[in-house]
């Protein structure tokens, strides 16, 4: 499942990041790495960005960028 498809207020574990090295490093710098748990806190209306929580850090990213990140939910 893609991070962009994850329901609001549900969590998943980062399973894969399909992005260039540059974006990968930025994501890693912000704490978004393989095996890390992320929770979608809320979505901005009109297909706006997602607010996600990783540990103690909250990040804003656009759905298009979140679609590069694959997550595994407890159910799947």
């Amino acid at each position: 499942m893609l991070l962009s498809e994850l329901d609001t207020l549900s969590s998943g574990t980062v399973a894969a990041i399909h992005a260039g090295q540059d974006l990968r490093r930025r994501l890693a710098g912000l704490g978004l790495r393989l095996g890390i748990r992320v929770k979608v806190m809320r979505r901005s209306p009109f297909n706006g960005p997602l607010q996600i929580r990783i540990g103690h850090t909250d990040l804003i990213l656009r759905p298009a960028d979140a679609a590069h990140i694959e997550v595994q939910t407890a159910a799947s």
Partner: peptide, 9 residues
């Protein structure tokens, strides 16, 4: 070329 990737403090 930088995606919107902001920290929400």
């Amino acid at each position: 070329n930088e995606p919107l990737l902001l920290e929400m403090p």
